[in-house]
Computed example of a mutant assay.
Amino acid sequence: MSDSGALALAAIVGQLSPDLGDADKQALAKLLDGNTSFPSKKAEKIAVTAKAIKCHTSNIDLTAHDCTLTFGGKDTTLKGRAAHELLATLAEEGVEPDPGAGNVWYALANLDCEIDVAQVKDKAGGGVTCTFNSAN
C-alpha cells in the first residue's frame, strides 16, 4: 500500500516504535498533520517496522478499544481513542476483521514501511510504501 492511509499507519506505529529516534517521530507526526515545511535531509528515509499488531473492539461493549503492538520482544499497548485511531487505520488499509462472540479483532504481522520524506513533501502522491502479512 502506498496511499495516505499508509502514511497514517506508519506515523501511528512509528510514534510507539523503540527503534525510531525523536527526530524521525517528529517528522512522521508533522507529515501526518499535513506540515511539510520543516527542514529535513534531502535523502531522508524513515523505516517503520513492527513484528505484530493486534487490535480489538466489541459490538457489545461499545467502549472497548485496545491494541497491542509487538516490536521485537517488546509489547506496547494502546487503549481508548489512540487504539481506535490505529484500529480504524488498519480497517482503512484493508486488514480484514475477525469477528466472533461480540468481539472484533484486526491483526497483522511483519509490518514494514518506508517513508521517503522528500517525496512525501513534494505532495505528488508518493513516498510511502508499507507491506504486511495478514495475521487472522
Rank of each mutant, 00 (worst) to 15 (best):
D75V: 12
L90E: 04
A10N: 00
D22H: 08
A27V: 01
S37R: 08
S17M: 05
K41R: 11
Y106G: 07
A135F: 05
G14S: 02
A23R: 10
V48C: 01
L32Y: 09
E96L: 09
A101M: 15
M1L: 13
T131G: 13
A107W: 07
I53Q: 02
T131D: 12
A8K: 14
K54P: 08
K54N: 14
K79N: 12
D122S: 08
T89F: 05
D3M: 03
A50W: 07
A43H: 13
V95R: 03
I115Y: 05
T70Q: 12
G21A: 02
D19E: 14
D3N: 11
V117R: 04
G73F: 09
T63P: 03
F71M: 04
C55F: 02
N110G: 09
E114N: 13
D116W: 00
P39V: 04
G5Y: 01
A10F: 00
P99I: 01
G34Q: 06
H84K: 15
D116E: 07
A50I: 00
A91T: 14
W105E: 13
L111V: 03
K42H: 07
N110I: 06
L9E: 03
T57C: 08
N133Q: 15
C55Q: 09
P39W: 06
N59Y: 12
K123M: 08
W105I: 13
A109H: 15
D24A: 10
N133K: 12
G73R: 10
V104G: 01
A52G: 06
A91Y: 09
K30R: 12
T76G: 08
A50M: 04
V13H: 03
E44K: 13
C113S: 02
W105A: 13
K79V: 13
V104W: 06
K30A: 10
E93A: 08
S58N: 05
L28F: 02
D3L: 04
E92L: 15
D61E: 11
A47Y: 09
E92F: 11
N133P: 05
C67S: 08
T77S: 10
D116L: 03
A29N: 08
E93S: 09
T57I: 09
H56M: 13
A64G: 11
Q119K: 13
A64C: 11
K51F: 08
K41H: 14
A52F: 06
F71A: 03
A109E: 14
K79A: 10
D3Q: 06
A52E: 12
C67M: 04
A83N: 04
G34T: 02
S40C: 11
S2P: 03
T57H: 07
S134G: 15
H84E: 13
L90V: 06
G125R: 00
A64D: 15
G5I: 02
T49H: 07
L32G: 07
N136Q: 14
W105D: 14
V117F: 04
I53Y: 01
A47R: 12
G72E: 04
M1A: 12
I60F: 13
Y106K: 08
G127S: 02
W105T: 15
A118R: 09
D22G: 09
A29P: 02
K54F: 06
K51N: 10
C130Q: 02
D122G: 09
